[in-house]
């Protein structure tokens, strides 16, 4: 009963993400409005949602201060935000997994040094670290992605390390060693697949987090730079219009919340499933 309800929530979340991903790819392609070029500003700017302009074009969410269609712009921004979130989180997860696995497998001083660095980076709040990095290099798409990866791998690496230490003590690792399998093969074929659960959950939850952080950096002017739209810099662009044209800042925030919400629900569902499995194996072991 509970499992069925959970499944349906995560299905909804997944469906929402698929719809959004298709929309951000398709809408800017089909629209004949240029979401970046600035046209007839005086006639087109700050039209309210649902307005039809003098050229007869319909604006579902209205227009921004330069007369650009908000909906098309928001979808174009979605490409950036989704790509940054997914690439940033997945690569951070991969690097974190590699670090954690090597750290646990090697042990000794390698383990101590790697984990000391991870702990030190974890001690600085991630946003502070992000701000320092993002501001020192030229702001832009590449910088944001690299910085998200550089500041996102530590948590995953700690989790994978802890999991690996448990896996290393498993009988099947001893069995593989006894059969003469090389250490690296055991790590790759036997240990790593069994230690991946927490990394996958953390990466899924990390996508929403990365999207939030990207929007925050862009809001402060240290992330994606206009005219390239991202949800964060669109909200920043509507900041001083909050009285006259609140939709400019509100609309991108709503789609951002929906996206992060879907990622969180998906990650939560995944965690429940994987944690359930872990709990089961624990009970079997005991």
């Amino acid at each position: 009963m509970i499992a069925a309800r959970r499944w349906s929530i995560s299905t909804w979340a997944l469906a929402a993400l698929v719809v959004l991903a298709s929309a951000v790819i398709v809408v800017p392609l089909l629209s004949h409005q240029d979401p970046i070029a600035i046209g007839d500003v005086l006639a087109l700017r700050l039209l309210p949602p649902g307005a039809t302009d003098t050229h007869g074009a319909f604006h579902l969410l209205g227009t921004d201060r330069f007369g650009r269609d908000l909906f098309v712009r928001m979808m174009l921004a979605g490409r950036v935000s989704l790509a940054v979130g997914i690439v940033g989180s997945v690569l951070a997860g991969a690097i974190g997994t590699a670090f954690g696995a090597v750290s646990a497998w090697a042990g000794g001083w390698v383990d101590r040094v790697l984990m000391a660095v991870a702990d030190a980076l974890l001690a600085i709040p991630r946003l502070v670290l992000l701000l320092v990095c993002a501001a020192l290099w030229r702001p832009g798409l590449t910088t944001v992605v690299i910085v998200l990866i550089a500041t996102g791998w530590m948590g995953v690496s700690r989790m994978v390390r802890a999991e690996m230490l448990g896996v290393r003590a498993q009988p099947y690792v001893d069995a593989a060693t006894a059969l003469g399998a090389p250490s690296l093969r055991i790590l790759w074929r036997h240990a790593l697949p069994n230690a991946l659960g927490p990394a996958i959950v953390a990466t899924t939850l990390g996508v929403g987090n990365a999207i939030l952080l990207e929007s925050g950096l862009s809001f402060l002017g240290l992330g994606i730079q206009p005219p390239q739209p991202s949800w964060g810099n669109m909200i920043a662009g509507g900041r001083d219009l909050i009285v006259v044209a609140p939709w400019v800042a509100i609309a991108p925030g709503l789609v951002l919340i929906a996206t992060v919400l879907a990622c969180t629900l998906l990650g939560d569902a995944l965690r429940d499933r994987l944690a359930g499995e872990a709990a089961m194996t624990l009970r079997e072991r005991a």
């Binding site: 925050g216 809001f219 909050i242 800042a249 925030g253 951002l256 969180t264």
Partner: peptide, 18 residues
């Protein structure tokens, strides 16, 4: 709680200021 957890603080701030 899940919605608030997913919302960026600066957006909530702007919306409430409005």
């Amino acid at each position: 709680t899940t919605t608030v957890y997913a919302a960026p603080s600066f957006w909530i701030a702007l919306a409430l200021v409005a």
